[in-house]
């Protein structure tokens, strides 16, 4: 330090540079300010769904209801429907009668409070060529009168796999299979890495690329904490077989909407259920069986 003058100047410049750098950083990060305002400590520290006690879950429900009112202007009732003992759900779809009207996709869109702008739905219907089972020949965007000659229709939604690739890959156990066979997502635990989207062979998962937009009047107030409550931005969601309905004994929305009765839903453990009759008496196949995912969703034909 033979040059105290130069040294001082150097220190001064460093301090100046540091200050400028820090303020530039603060400026660059400014967009986060509004975002963090929304993030309370309670929300930040919220435990995994499976670790929440009874009272804690009530608190979470109260918060979700409050936020829905604040952000969407809709008064909703959120419940925590639990799996029913002795019930494992199965779903079957009759390809011989499906006409591809997409009423099921629309019912899902409305029931599950999907983003209105993107026509989001958990069901994607492929228009397929008669004589081909190659999805590469399919088209999801068909927009002409149905059923079109020479075509058949293949609605695809979450297959609720027993050996679900999405559950395997999730790094934080934010998605899991419930005792009644439904694969659910804890929307408050998902970190949004989208590994499950990459893993799913059925295009069953959706990511909230932005905050979903639903007009207050269109919000379905009958909600489940693991199912159709309005999802936060930045997390993954999926079909839950409408567990907020089906765990209360009701039929899923897509089934009720089907004008051809192509859909059959019920309890796989009940040998007298409709779904069991279909599985035992119809020609059944599952989608991409060779992948070993063991779906709970079955397709069948009239014979």
């Amino acid at each position: 330090m033979s040059e105290p003058e130069g040294g001082k100047r150097r220190v001064f410049l460093k301090v100046l540079g540091g200050t400028l750098g820090a303020s530039a950083f603060a400026y660059a990060m400014a967009p986060l300010r509004a975002w963090t305002k929304d993030l309370s400590a309670e929300k930040f520290l919220q435990k995994h769904y499976k670790e929440l006690g009874k009272e804690e879950i009530q608190k979470v429900i109260a918060r979700v209801e409050r936020e829905t009112l604040e952000k969407y202007g809709a008064k909703v009732k959120v419940k925590d429907q639990k799996p029913i003992e002795g019930v494992e759900f199965g779903y079957a779809l009759n390809l011989s009668v499906c006409i591809g009207c997409r009423k099921c996709a629309e019912a899902c869109h409305v029931e599950n409070n999907h983003d209105r702008k993107t026509n989001n739905s958990y069901i994607r219907v492929l228009e397929m060529d008669q004589g081909s089972f190659d999805m590469a020949r399919g088209d999801a965007q068909y927009d002409h009168a149905v059923p079109a000659p020479g075509k058949y229709y293949l609605p695809i939604q979450c297959q609720q796999c027993d050996n679900a690739p999405c559950v395997k890959v999730c790094p934080v156990q934010a998605t899991w299979k419930e005792p009644d066979g439904i694969v659910v997502v804890d929307y408050d635990w998902c970190i949004g890495c989208r590994y499950c989207e990459a893993a799913c062979p059925y295009h069953a998962r959706r990511f909230n690329w932005t905050k979903p937009e639903v007009p207050a009047a269109a919000v379905n107030p009958d909600q489940g904490i693991l199912s159709n409550r309005i999802r936060p931005q930045g997390v993954v969601e999926k079909c839950t077989f409408c567990l907020h309905r089906t765990r209360e004994g009701r039929l899923p929305a897509c089934l009720e909407a089907c004008p051809t009765g192509a859909r059959v839903f019920g309890n796989l453990l009940d040998p007298k259920s409709e779904i069991r009759w279909v599985l035992e008496n119809k020609r059944i196949y599952v989608l991409k069986e060779e992948l070993g995912t063991k779906p709970r969703f079955f397709y069948f034909f009239d014979v």
Binding site: F25, Y27, A28, M29, A30, P31, L32, A34, W35, G192, F207, N208, W209, T210, K211, Q233, G234
Partner: peptide, 13 residues
């Protein structure tokens, strides 16, 4: 960093 902050705040769309 600024672009990331915007992406986090406004969503990954």
């Amino acid at each position: 960093a600024n672009a990331w902050a915007q992406q986090v705040a406004n969503g990954m769309h």
